[in-house]
Design a protein around this nucleic acid. Sequence first.
DNA 1: ATCATGACGCCCG
DNA 2: CCGGGCGCCATGA
Length: 102
Amino acid sequence: MEPSREEKIWQVVFAIPPGCVASYGQVADMAGLGRQARLVGRVLSQLPDGHALPWHRVLRSNGQIAFPEGSERHLQQVALLQAEGIDAGGGRVAMSQYRWQP
DNA sequence: ATCATGACGCCCG
DNA sequence: CCGGGCGCCATGA
């Protein structure tokens, strides 16, 4: 039984180290799923309870947080990023500075 | 089967 | 910066 696409995505996200970020597209690519960034977003939106995935380290390709500014999710994500020393001011992160590249 | 929606991405004007 | 279009995939009506 080979890992499902979901499991591959989980594994990639889980591997993103603290203080670093990755884009949905990057995750999809690293999971061997090509340009299925959308699938990554869907999977992260339906994570089971009790997961330990650093979902907050996944952003849009331009460094923007995927949630509408002001929403609860958005605020939480900014807080989690700041807690790792990532400047997420304006709901935006400088990818060139924090991008994760193994 | 079709249509719309969604934590996306890239290209063009 | 702001729209509009197209590609991609899973879900649900």
